[in-house]
Each structure stands twice: as C-alpha cells, then as structure tokens.
Amino acid sequence: MNGKKYLRLFLYIIADLLCFSLQNTHGMLFGIIGMTPLLTCALAYGVAVYDNVNFALITAAVSGVLSEITLGSVIGPYAILLTAMCFLINRSSNYFDSGALFAVITAVGYSVLACLGVLICFSVQNGINISFEQFVNHGLLRGLYTWLFCVIACMIMKKQPVED
C-alpha cells in the first residue's frame, strides 16, 4: 500500500470516530419515533461497496467496536458480525457495475441485520427480553433509517480501482 492508501484508511477511521460522536450526541440527528441511524454502520457499508476488502474489513471492525463501546457490552461479537457482513458485501459488490443499485438492493438487509445485532447485544448484556415493539422500532425502523444513510454513503464515495 502506498502513502495515499494509508491516508485514505486513516481518514476512514477518523470519519468513523466522527460518525460515532454524531450518532451519540443527543439532539444532533433527526430522530424518527426516537430512532436515530447507525452512521458507523453506514460508513462501513460504503467502504465495503466501493473500496478494497482490507479497508472494508478494518473499517467494519472499528465500526463494530465503537458500537459495542456505545452499548457498554463486551467487545467482539457485534464487531465480528459487522466485519463478516462487510466482507460478504465487498466480495459481492464486484459483480455489480452500479454501486448505488447494489446499495439500494442489499443495504436494506445489511442495515436491518446491523440494527438487530445492536439490539440483541444490548439485550444480552442487560439480561432483558426483546419486545415486539423494540424489534419493530430498533430493528426494522432504525434499519430502514440506516439504509437511507448507506445509500447516501454510496452516493458520496467514489469507486476505487480493484486491487490484485
């Protein structure tokens, strides 16, 4: 990797920390029925679609760890889930010419799974059961809201050349 790529990776991590701060600042993001999007997950998705696999994995791992820190849960399981999903997305995105179209189709499932993962980690950590209302709000609604930002992330990012 040359210096430019290292810089790009560094900027991804900084962006990750910025998204982490934004999504944890009360009143910063517009909430829908109190639900705010997971910007860190959306960033990881964008990197997975448009950049190389190594950057996708590192960004996803950092996003996952930051989410777990927010929840106060043990570090590891959610980051592994997010990393695995971004790995699959990165491998799949190479078969699509249009990243935005790929995002519109696949980001829904990714976002909903990512938000459900957060909910499950929180429930396991605190020993509480997930109610149907929580499943709908924190899983589906938040997932759809996050999907929107996944699409925005894909529209902002530029497709990087595929590495050998």
């Binding site: 696999v53 590192i58 590891g76 592994i80 990393t83 790995f87």
Partner: peptide, 17 residues
C-alpha cells in the same frame, strides 16, 4: 481475496472478546 485479512481481524476480535 481478503480471506487472510479477514482471518486476522477475526482472530484479533475473538481475542478482544
């Protein structure tokens, strides 16, 4: 492609866990 990096990150995350 990326499998080694994935395995490495997986290893680190399991250790962190």
């Amino acid at each position: 492609k990326g499998a080694r990096m994935f395995a490495g990150i997986l290893f680190v995350l399991i250790g962190a866990w």
